[in-house]
Amino acid sequence: MRVSLFITCLADQMHPEVGVSTVRVLRRLGCEVLFSRQQTCCGQPFHNAGFPAEARRVARTLIEALGPTGEAGDADYVVTPSGSCAAMVKHSYPELFDGDPDELERARALASRTFELSQFLVHVLGVEDVGASLARKATYHPSCHASRFLHVGSEPLKLLSRVRGLELAPLAHAQDCCGFGGLFSVKLPQVSSAMAGEKLEHVAASGAQVLVGTDMGCLMHLAGLLRARGSPVEALHLAQVLDSGHGAR
């Protein structure tokens, strides 16, 4: 099976280790991973800020890069380690390109091939045990766009529960937003951080050493607050946990 990696701009520039882990996890499961260097960003920050023309301009780049004529055009699936960016492609693109039938068709075609990592592993590959091991106590934060827009529910938990040595602690108020929200985090930094502050209270109460998520936006924000406070809790992307115990990390 050929899989085109939609890395997301944030993981590409600031967290390449998440991309590396995603590639390794997919390869271990027998996927051939392709990568189109034409991709940049999905355009979500512009869409969410209320600038649809700019969002379309950026989105066209991604549709071109990940579409059939792009560098990884013959891939069967497009997989991304981000629920938020996957939701942008799957839900907002069709709406964004509603005005042009040709563009809409290309947007829909990409949307239908695009999968968030945990849903791809569990539903497309039919795998729950990826053979990882990590002897830590972890808790899982379901990010809003993954859970509310893509209905990512039990998939990450199923995958995590099969990681050898990993103790999963429940997280209180797990469904509450961490306060990242893209530009929201810099437009209203105090409110954003108060939201993260409450999230971290619940993480602390869970006793976890590792906070796991499916989106680097949320994790960068939470890790930023954890580090500013000198907390020993480590924020890890699901892909990094699933890549653990193979001598890779």
């Binding site: 590409d12 600031m14 967290h15 390449p16 280790e17 990568f35 993260a196 930023g224």
Partner: peptide, 13 residues
């Protein structure tokens, strides 16, 4: 209120 991630020497690409 927060720290940034330490920027990596190389991007994923």
């Amino acid at each position: 209120t927060r720290r940034l991630p330490a920027p990596p020497a190389r991007s994923f690409r």
